[in-house]
Design a protein around this nucleic acid. Structure first.
Lengths: 212, 212
DNA sequence: CGATGTGAATAATTTCACAGCG
DNA sequence: CGCTGTGAAATTATTCACATCG
């Protein structure tokens, strides 16, 4: 791999580019198909300069007057984003959000497969969601270790998040996507990404009150 | 209001601070209760310098040797973030994600109330979720206008997102939280926030492949 | 003192602008 | 030509460091 260091802001946009390029691939099965930084920018609502600067980090091999070979660019982005592999994922928390995530089609298409779901509520244990049985949390370390699973999605309440994150890292998890409304900490070497749905709404209301 | 211009990165963190302060408020009902930038920083996994710089934008009125009056700080943040008001929200898309969002407790607590849910699937129209009947999409403009609703949450598939966003802005929506895996555009004066669950996972896999 | 508030320094990100290639 | 690739400039964000206040 060894890709130098790509800024986080760029990584985030690379995933957008990849998704929009997918449409291109689907539309024309024909051989050579090129896209310019300007076109990709207008599709993603970003400037051509931003697109070129971002792609610069991954050595996209664009051609003057033509742009980027879409198929080749996708392969390059997949390698950078780790989408050329399949990833087993455990989901912790079988509430409404956990359920939505377990049924979310987008994950599997990108190579992320939820292989186990855990909760501490005996009421929920044993239910079958999208082909996966909800398992009791006490079994999680065993499943992670025997399956050599490195990615976890956390969809548990505020108070339970940090404790679960600790349990996950102890069991060998290396990357956590946390949906609890509290940012969780992890030892270095473990990557945590916090997504807070309420925060996102608050951004909107701040915009509305700062207008006028 | 008129708060000067607060950087987007700071706004995002202000919402975190607010959430963590909530715990403080709940724990001690006693009168004066102060928190320092250092304490707040260690709770949120940020540096004291970042906390002070962020709060600087909202004139928090901290006291040397003591820190910030928690109750007063909450009120200040609420005003900046628009949490001292109640916001009516429409939800578009009654799939699994839409369902999780409609049952999500966090929104209502912050003053965001989902008052209507829309879908174009006749199969789903009429169902009752958390006290709200799923309505047909054809009625959305009327509901938005008569309710003077300004915030919408979009949880529809890729292909439907931009069209729906256009319909929403035409009906008077001023802020959109978009969960579709495509960023949508809107005229200036309308604020769009894109949240892509797949993107978040891709950040994790990039981290895992860039290690080693 | 030990905390805030805040200029100033540093770092990161975005944007510009243009040489050079096919 | 019209595009990429890429230094350099501009902007934005973070961190430092310290005067100041209760």
């Amino acid at each position: 791999m060894m890709k130098g260091n790509i800024p986080p802001a760029t990584i985030e946009r690379l995933t957008y580019y990849r998704r929009h390029l997918e449409r291109y691939l689907n539309r024309s099965a024909s051989g050579a198909n090129f896209i310019s930084s300007g076109e990709l920018g207008s599709q993603t609502h970003l400037s051509a300069a931003t697109v070129r600067r971002d792609l610069f980090y991954v050595k996209p091999g664009g051609k003057p007057r033509l742009g980027y070979d879409v198929k080749k660019l996708c392969l390059t982005l997949d390698a950078v984003l780790g989408l050329d592999k399949r990833w087993k994922v455990v989901l912790v928390g079988a509430g409404n959000l956990g359920k939505a995530l377990s049924f979310y089609q987008g994950f599997r298409k990108l190579g992320f497969e939820i292989v186990a779901i855990f909760d501490n509520d005996r009421e929920k244990v044993g239910r079958n969601w999208n082909g996966i049985k909800v398992n009791h949390i006490k079994n999680i370390a065993g499943v992670i270790k025997s399956g050599k699973i490195r990615i976890a999605v956390l969809a548990v309440p505020f108070g339970a998040a940090q404790g679960m994150a600790d349990m996950l890292t102890k069991a060998g998890i290396k990357a956590i996507l946390n949906f609890a409304p509290v940012s969780v900490a992890a030892p270095s070497g473990v990557f945590v990404r916090n997504v807070d749905l309420s925060t996102e709404l608050e951004n909107l209301s701040h915009f509305l009150v700062s207008e006028a």
